[in-house]
Amino acid sequence: MNLTLRVWRQPSASAEGRLVTYEVTDVSPDMSFLEMLDVLNERLILAGEEPIAFDHDCREGICGACGMVINGVPHGPQKATTTCQLHMRHFSDGDTITIEPWRSQAFPVIKDLVVDRSAFDRIIAAGGYISAPTGSAPEAHSIPVPKANADAAFEAAACIGCGACVAACPNGSAMLFTAAKVTHLGLLPQGQPERYTRVVDMVAAHDAEGFGGCTNTGECAAACPKGIPLETISRLNRDYLQATLRRH
């Protein structure tokens, strides 16, 4: 099939960007979206043009590196699917596809579709962990974890840190990302000692990075390729309010 792409091109962080139109021919429906871009990039290189820069790595939907807004939807039209796992069979011949980077103050564009998501790392560094220095661990079976809690913790821990939630949120909030980690660790017995300091510190880091506040529109959970539930945000709010009412 043949497609028309409108791709955001921006040479560097400080440069102006714009949408540039490209025609791509002979696209196979079995190609992944990124393979389709690979084909276009090969052509651009041979024509002496700069290829389109985009982040990607595992191409299995788990590393969280890839991500672009495809026709206004982070990671494109298929539910619960990262860009690398999106296949061209979900498009039709003659389609025009608009491709933009994540738009967020906290994720500045580095080049074309590549953005800087280090703000996420700083949110985790602020408290998204259980302090368990190597060697200090007790025998694994000394603390049983109810299966329901373990499963719910896993569900939240499945976050790949891609940033689609931020890209989708009308407020540019990273609350789903933050809440996923708060939920994962807060549901496990090992996570209890730091449960309340963790949520306060992580929310403070979230706000300091310039992300917007959550207004419960649910766009994040709809865009999340890993299906992190919106309920995690409720849990974050609960823990946060308990923490602030309790501590002082």
Binding site: W8, E100, R103, A168, N171, F211, G212, G213, T217
Partner: peptide, 24 residues
């Protein structure tokens, strides 16, 4: 205000996805 600052550049296309009319 904070939300506006959090997204200084808007999307060229942005269809309705999840948010209800009420939420928007």
């Amino acid at each position: 205000r904070r939300a506006r600052q959090a997204r200084p550049v808007r999307y060229a296309t942005r269809p309705k996805v999840q948010g209800s009319y009420a939420a928007r």
